[in-house]
Design a protein around this nucleic acid. Structure first.
Lengths: 132, 132
DNA sequence: AGTTTCTACTACGTCGCGTAGTTACCAGCC
DNA sequence: GGCTGGTAACTACGCGACGTAGTAGAAACT
């Protein structure tokens, strides 16, 4: 058995497809055809390939789908930001870090000032949320 | 081509082996034999399997090795915390997040109070470092 | 010299993912 | 009502990563 982690790892094509879902993110969802057409502009890819990928993403619960007549409409189950956060969290949890502060410190070491500001803003926001 | 990310993803056994290196982390390093003996207590595993894994980890630059007579002594190239941080960073970078603040906010959503404190401590530490 | 110890190389099975074909269904058109 | 086009469902193949390990050969101990 290769991997125990249930980490939502994305392959390259899976990522590209998710991009599409994120970009055309509306409440309506996106069909295979729409995704395929969007991708077919930039690369040579078969319709069924897109179908397969969307199917796999659905099985991983990274996208949800609802019937629309005969077809399916796919929607990203989580925003790009939420998925990113989830993946980061899983890393932190899976790695079984004892000294979390040290890990976070290392993380900040690689951060730009802008990113640190983003983090402080986010931090302030959760704080505020807890207070009110 | 399956993956573009040069993310240092660990398999299950690779992780277990890294644990050993981290636990017996001294300046001296650890031999294959030592790792094997440590693991052989809990599971049925061949000496050569451990060797192969260590070899692959070395090729991924996750461990370094120095000769010790005929044998090699392996050392984790990065601490568990540093590797964790690096992986988290790669996730954040690879996901091409536009709204980093939102991503970090999501991340904090899943955090315990203790973790938030750890983060604040780490943040204070980088701040201090920049100031002095 | 024979036995042990360690490396180096090769190998095999499984799984994830990129990639796609084939088959079959259903809805509308001529 | 059979043909056509769009969809889905299922199957498949190649490749790389990883768990797993065997074998060959060098080196060292006895």
């Amino acid at each position: 058995m290769p991997h125990s982690t249930s980490s939502p790892r994305l392959g390259d094509l899976e990522r590209v497809v998710m991009e599409q879902l994120w970009e055309h993110a509306g409440a309506e969802g996106t069909t295979v055809r729409e995704v395929h057409e969007a991708l077919a502009g930039g690369r040579d890819i078969a319709y069924t390939t897109v179908m397969t990928v969307l199917d796999r993403l659905a099985k991983k619960d990274l996208v949800s789908r609802e019937r629309d007549g005969r077809a399916w409409r796919y929607r990203a189950a989580a925003s790009r930001e939420a998925l990113t956060a989830r993946t980061m969290r899983m890393t932190l949890d899976d790695m079984d870090v004892t000294d979390r502060r040290a890990a976070l410190l290392h993380f900040l070491d690689g951060a730009s000032t802008a990113e640190i500001d983003d983090l402080k803003a986010a931090l302030a926001e959760v704080e505020a949320r807890h207070t009110d």
